[in-house]
Design a protein around this nucleic acid. Structure first.
Length: 191
DNA sequence: TGCCCGATTAACT
DNA sequence: GTTAATCGGGCAA
C-alpha cells in the first residue's frame, strides 16, 4: 500500500519536496491522479507571492508546512500550492499538472471536455477538474477532502525553467516526470 | 483612488 | 501567433 504523506514530508526544503512529489497521488474528494508537473517558489526570489511579505492573500504561505495555498490567477482561475519548509520560510510548490487516474467522469463533467490530456494539464485546469477553490485555502493536506499518497517505485524526474513568469524565470525550479503525456508543456530535451 | 500587471486559458486570426 | 476575460495586489499620486 502507498504511504500517506504527512506534514513532516512537507517540512523540508522546497527543493527536496518538489521532485519527491512527482509520481505521488493527489486526490480531492476521491478525484485526482498522479502528479507529473510542479514548480517550487521561495520567498527569497521575486517570482514568489511571498517575496514582498505577508498579505491577506498569501497568509497561508507564512504558516506551517503541509497546508494548501489556493489563490485566484488572472481573476479567473484557481491555482493550488503545497506549503513547505518550517513555518515562516514562506515557500510552496505549485501543482501544475496531474495524470488523471480517479474520478474521470467527475473531471469531464466539471471541465466540459472529454480528452484526458486536457483535463488536468495546467494549474487552472486541474483545479477546475478536482473542484479546488478558495474554500480549500488553508486546509491541511493530510486530512479530507485531501488525500496524498507517496509514489511507488522509481520515477524519472526532470527539471527546467518555470512557466508563465517574467521574474527569476531562469531558475530551473520546474520539475516533471520525463516523457509524461500529461505535462502542461513539454520539457526541453536534455542535453 | 486609480492604474498596471500577473505562478492562465480558450478562442480567435 | 494574438487577444479577451476578469480581479486582487502593489505602487504612484
Amino acid at each position: 500500500m502507498p504511504k500517506r504523506l504527512t506534514k513532516s514530508f512537507f517540512n523540508r526544503s522546497v527543493h527536496e519536496v518538489a521532485p519527491d512529489l512527482i509520481g505521488a497521488t493527489l486526490l480531492v474528494n476521491g478525484v485526482g491522479g498522479r502528479l507529473v508537473e510542479v514548480e517550487a517558489y521561495h520567498h527569497t526570489e521575486p517570482a514568489a507571492h511571498s517575496f514582498r511579505g505577508p498579505t491577506e492573500r498569501n497568509a497561508v504561505m507564512f504558516g506551517p508546512a503541509g497546508y494548501a495555498y489556493v489563490y485566484r490567477s488572472y481573476g479567473i482561475h484557481w491555482c493550488l500550492n503545497f506549503v513547505c519548509e518550517p513555518k515562516g520560510s514562506a515557500s510552496a510548490v505549485l501543482i501544475r499538472a496531474i495524470e488523471p487516474t480517479a474520478g474521470l467522469a467527475a473531471m469531464r463533467r466539471r471541465r466540459g471536455v472529454a480528452d484526458e490530456r486536457l483535463l488536468c494539464s495546467g494549474p487552472g485546469r486541474l483545479c477546475e477538474a478536482l473542484g479546488v477553490t478558495v474554500k480549500h485555502n488553508g486546509l491541511a493536506l493530510d486530512a479530507p477532502p485531501f488525500e496524498l499518497l507517496a509514489r511507488q517505485g522509481d520515477v524519472d524526474v526532470v527539471a527546467g525553467p518555470r512557466i508563465g513568469i517574467t521574474k527569476a524565470a531562469e531558475l530551473p525550479w520546474r520539475y516533471g516526470e520525463k516523457g509524461s503525456r500529461f505535462l502542461s508543456k513539454p520539457f526541453r530535451p536534455e542535453a
